[in-house]
Design a protein around this nucleic acid. Structure first.
Lengths: 118, 118
DNA sequence: CTCGTAGTACGAGGGGTATCGTACGAGCCT
DNA sequence: AGGCTCGTACGATACCCCTCGTACTACGAG
């Protein structure tokens, strides 16, 4: 009915105060999840799970997105059959100022380093 | 012989270029290791393993220090029977500018938040 | 040399996790 | 309604990791 109708039931997210640094770091310590977060940050818009071209099956993909959500890194919302994913920039910035940007920059840097065969 | 004699055999460390962001994040995603790194950063000097008051046995302690070393977060050197630990600030800063400081600040912030019962 | 201290090596136990396959549910489109 | 697509749930498998205990090595002090 509304413009950006979010159908379906809601998904459990940790409150901002419940986000633990260790959990965030653990979530990002997996290459697959780090890549997801990088793409999400680069595109700057919410993306559905299926828009990521991950080299794993759907089940595994679901698993990784859940880890990211439960650690507080991303926010997930149903829109029709699609599940939209967005970075929790504000919450992370409020809790750990500058951390997300440093992490994204570090990931980009490493990707460039590897990409150039260095 | 030299002034700060480092006796014993050398320990394997990853070269700067071999340090992987994922490994660093994984190393720091353990509360015990994060605490170690925080203390190391706060003291600003090399510390022997036994100077940390960790709530685990010696074996476990050894394990955590090794993970930190092998991921490139710390540098370890024998000095007599003691093993001195130092943060690899320069290498990490060269690879991932600003990341270490953001991480340490985040850890401090979270510790303060928890310490104040918030 | 003997003893004590610092740390290691190795193996075991217990829990977590990354992956998959298959079967299922929830919305859209015709 | 029927079918399609997106994502979930569940179990299985294999691996990794935190922890410990015990036995061991390396170095320094007396």
């Amino acid at each position: 009915m509304t413009d950006t109708a979010t159908t379906g039931r809601a998904l459990p997210h940790p409150e901002r105060e419940q986000i633990r640094l260790e959990s965030v770091l653990h979530a990002l310590s997996d290459p697959m999840r780090l890549q997801i977060v990088c793409e999400l940050a680069a595109k700057e818009v919410e993306l559905s799970c299926s828009q990521f071209d991950l080299p794993v099956t759907k089940s595994t993909s679901t698993h990784h997105f859940r880890v990211l959500r439960e650690s507080g890194v991303i926010r997930q919302v149903y829109r029709g059959t699609a599940k939209m994913n967005g970075l929790r920039r504000d919450d992370l910035e409020g809790l750990f100022p500058g951390l997300l940007d440093s992490l994204l920059a570090a990931a980009d840097r490493q990707a460039a380093r590897i990409g150039d065969g260095r």
